[in-house]
Design a binder for these strands. Structure first.
Lengths: 196, 196
DNA sequence: CGCCGGGTTGAGCCATTTCAATGTCTGTGG
DNA sequence: CCACAGACATTGAAATGGCTCAACCCGGCG
């Protein structure tokens, strides 16, 4: 049973009973947590093929909203649980994807805790560019706003904007529309790792 | 086959082939990642009963070292993998623990990305205090130094020290030796959630 | 007793935020 | 086809939270 959501529509809410899991068919989603005073942290983005949440649970522990338009296949939570209990393959597959997630989060902990704004942005650009493991050089999804980047990196939109301008001046990226193209992945990677 | 490690001994190294998993029998360990220039982020702490890493993998993605003395049972990686492939229960159990870890990391992402030093320290104290789900009020493990707290929270030891002094002045905690006792969990929780 | 590895405290600094203004693109209605 | 509104992005100037550097303290141990 598929459902479709419009731009910015929140379809999963933190601390709400997890009756459904959502398998992304097309479009993208932001996954985030927020503080009572409105501060927001983007946990990640979901694309085609991703399942939210990626693991069985009774309550969602983060919220999700559509970027532009989103189509998802809804999977009842009891069905997923049942699948995990009966099919060892399904369980192993989930364990593999959660392992991937954990490794990613370890890196992001390091990034948020110990890297400078410049390093974080470079890491983000590289991460987006190599998203699908493709031959480098994907532009950043134009559905991702400066505010999204800021909330992902724990910065402000102004800082992100200033740094993007700096990267542009240094010919590391080019900007057209909202899309960002990576021009010099090697130098960006050097910024991430080495603190340049 | 059990092994034992001395204070500060690193027994698991990032980017090294994961031949073994370590089941903590007694003592504690710090799990961390570091940048080439020495900046360090503590990913978490391991205690009795924890398994490192908690999921099958080919390479470790973080390092671990003993706090004081540590005893672990070493589990060969192929054995764990085999166990997961044959016993659905083992796989499901791993999935449950990785789910817990993921939820914790989501919260820490929010903490590192969007909370102030004061809020982070309060969150850390509450988290340590309620570690085992016990009736509140565990003191912070004295094996955890100010540097550890700082590296866990993405702060400096000086900031941690200053904030602990502030909390002490406000009668939220008491300090004796290196151990920290929680005096007013409710007010600490208010700091975490509300930004006070 | 005196050294040594934390821990605490202070003063000044700096990266990032905050506040504020201006620019740019898009869609809309006259 | 143009004027205009609104949302987002950029840029600048000023404020600030947390960091750096540096001194001092304290308890344990040779």
């Amino acid at each position: 049973m598929e459902r479709s959501f419009g731009d910015r529509q929140e379809f999963m809410t933190e601390d709400t009973p997890a009756s459904m899991h959502f398998h992304v068919v097309s479009g993208g989603a932001r996954l985030f947590k927020s503080l009572p005073d409105g501060r927001r942290q983007i946990i990640g983005f979901a694309h085609k093929g991703d399942v939210l949440p990626a693991y069985p649970c009774t309550h969602y522990d983060y919220s999700a909203e559509a970027m532009r338009t989103l189509r998802v296949a809804c999977v009842p939570a009891p069905y997923l649980r049942h699948l995990h209990e009966t099919s060892p393959g399904a369980c192993a597959a989930s364990l593999r994807t959660t392992r991937q997630l954990l490794v990613g989060f370890h890196n992001r902990l390091l990034m948020l805790g110990r890297q400078t704004a410049r390093e974080r942005l470079a890491a983000f650009l590289i991460g987006q560019g190599t998203r699908m493991g493709r031959g480098e050089l994907w532009p950043v999804d134009p559905g991702i706003s400066r505010a999204d980047i800021a909330d992902f990196l724990g910065l402000t939109t102004e800082t992100v904007s200033r740094l993007l301008s700096a990267f542009h001046r240094e010919k590391l990226i080019s900007r057209e529309r909202r899309a960002i193209h990576i021009l010099d992945p090697d130098r960006l990677r050097a910024i991430v790792a080495h603190s340049e």
